Amino acid sequence: MDEPANDETTRERGVDDPARDFEAHRRHLVGLAYRMLGSVAEAEDAVQDAYLRWHRADRAAVGDARAFLSRTVARLCLDRLRAAKARRETYVGPWLPEPLLDAEALAADTASEYASDLSVGLLMALERLSPLERAAFLLHDVFDVGFAEVAALIGRSEAACRQLATRARAHVRAARPRFAVAPEEGSRLVAAFAEAVQRADASGLARLLAADAVLHSDGGGRKTAALNPIVGRDRVARFFAGIAAKFPDVLAASRGASINGLPGLIVTEADGSVQTLAFEIVDGSIAAIYFVRNPDKLAHLAPRLH
């Protein structure tokens, strides 16, 4: 009996293998979808939908698989963004993207200054764009798609797409922090923060924070969290000291992690659920803390933590 053909033999014979061809682009597609949606789960769903469409497509007529699949995923994400608009408007408290532990795996393979940036600050800036601005900016500025193709994808003129991308670019540059932090410095500040919280030491926490530090906490109505950002060194310090005074072991079961490329902590609660804190550091101080408590945004982490 003949041996089954392996991938190399299949390619040599020119046999169509949609799964193999799709998998070659999966990382790129998930990276695009996550930037569009700010959700790991929704990004993976959009990519799975694209996979089903790829199976049904006339693949022999597709000249560039990556371009075809990128267009498919972008359209699916635009549909999801439009459908999610009402949900986002009624979201309880600040909205934060789902935390991502392996940001490097979803870096775009382009020369864009944004290629490896999946920081929370960037994703929050993208969230404030319209769906079309977001699509035009990501496709052109991050994934190097020409404006003619962007125009065909989103159903606008090429000139309109240039304007969309220009507006988005200006907003992102104004809102997105650009401060590189050495891993050692990030780890040191996060460890000092965790220690100060454990001691409920408000003054110790204040020394670690920038004067205009801001805390964004996302409970989504599922977990207790501040309904508005908390701004100012002393207010943020008192917030965490107050939590520690009520719950002395609040960070006892925590470990350091890279979250969206930022230094951070993963905290395991008594019931086994998790929460994450990501820290934006500027000039040796903690400038922003992104605290995700909404269990809907953390479920995808469970397989990674066992």
Rank of each mutant, 00 (worst) to 15 (best):
residue 4 P to I: 09
residue 8 E to Y: 13
residue 13 R to P: 04
residue 14 G to R: 10
residue 18 P to V: 05
residue 21 D to A: 13
residue 23 E to G: 07
residue 25 H to D: 09
residue 25 H to N: 14
residue 27 R to P: 03
residue 31 G to I: 00
residue 36 M to N: 01
residue 37 L to Y: 00
residue 37 L to H: 00
residue 38 G to P: 02
residue 39 S to V: 06
residue 44 E to W: 05
residue 45 D to P: 07
residue 49 D to C: 07
residue 52 L to H: 14
residue 53 R to E: 14
residue 53 R to Y: 08
residue 56 R to P: 08
residue 60 A to L: 11
residue 65 A to Q: 11
residue 66 R to W: 07
residue 66 R to G: 11
residue 67 A to N: 09
residue 67 A to D: 13
residue 67 A to W: 07
residue 69 L to F: 08
residue 71 R to I: 06
residue 73 V to W: 00
residue 73 V to F: 04
residue 75 R to W: 03
residue 75 R to V: 06
residue 76 L to F: 05
residue 76 L to D: 01
residue 80 R to P: 01
residue 83 A to Q: 12
residue 83 A to G: 08
residue 89 E to S: 13
residue 91 Y to N: 04
residue 92 V to K: 12
residue 92 V to M: 09
residue 92 V to W: 11
residue 94 P to F: 04
residue 96 L to G: 02
residue 100 L to K: 00
residue 102 D to K: 08
residue 103 A to I: 05
residue 105 A to N: 09
residue 115 A to D: 05
residue 116 S to Q: 10
residue 118 L to E: 02
residue 121 G to K: 00
residue 124 M to D: 08
residue 125 A to Q: 03
residue 127 E to D: 14
residue 129 L to R: 01
residue 130 S to I: 07
residue 130 S to D: 10
residue 132 L to G: 00
residue 132 L to V: 06
residue 133 E to R: 04
residue 134 R to W: 01
residue 135 A to C: 13
residue 135 A to H: 03
residue 136 A to W: 00
residue 137 F to H: 00
residue 137 F to P: 00
residue 140 H to S: 14
residue 142 V to G: 00
residue 142 V to Q: 00
residue 143 F to V: 02
residue 144 D to M: 10
residue 144 D to I: 06
residue 147 F to C: 07
residue 147 F to Q: 06
residue 150 V to D: 01
residue 150 V to G: 01
residue 151 A to E: 08
residue 152 A to C: 09
residue 159 A to V: 15
residue 162 R to F: 05
residue 163 Q to T: 15
residue 164 L to S: 03
residue 167 R to I: 12
residue 172 V to N: 02
residue 175 A to W: 03
residue 178 R to M: 11
residue 182 A to Q: 12
residue 182 A to P: 14
residue 187 S to K: 10
residue 195 E to A: 14
residue 201 D to W: 06
residue 204 G to R: 07
residue 207 R to D: 15
residue 207 R to M: 11
residue 210 A to I: 05
residue 214 V to E: 13
residue 215 L to P: 01
residue 219 G to I: 02
residue 223 K to N: 09
residue 229 P to C: 06
residue 231 V to P: 02
residue 231 V to L: 08
residue 232 G to K: 03
residue 232 G to L: 10
residue 234 D to T: 11
residue 235 R to P: 00
residue 236 V to P: 01
residue 237 A to T: 05
residue 238 R to S: 12
residue 240 F to Y: 15
residue 248 P to C: 06
residue 252 A to Y: 11
residue 253 A to T: 15
residue 253 A to F: 09
residue 255 R to P: 07
residue 255 R to M: 10
residue 256 G to I: 07
residue 257 A to I: 07
residue 258 S to L: 11
residue 259 I to E: 01
residue 262 L to I: 03
residue 262 L to M: 13
residue 262 L to K: 04
residue 263 P to C: 04
residue 263 P to A: 02
residue 267 V to H: 09
residue 268 T to P: 06
residue 271 D to F: 08
residue 271 D to V: 09
residue 271 D to A: 10
residue 273 S to D: 15
residue 274 V to Y: 09
residue 275 Q to P: 04
residue 275 Q to A: 11
residue 280 E to F: 07
residue 282 V to T: 10
residue 284 G to T: 07
residue 286 I to N: 01
residue 290 Y to G: 04
residue 297 K to Q: 15
residue 297 K to H: 12
residue 299 A to K: 14
residue 303 P to K: 04
residue 304 R to L: 14
residue 305 L to E: 10
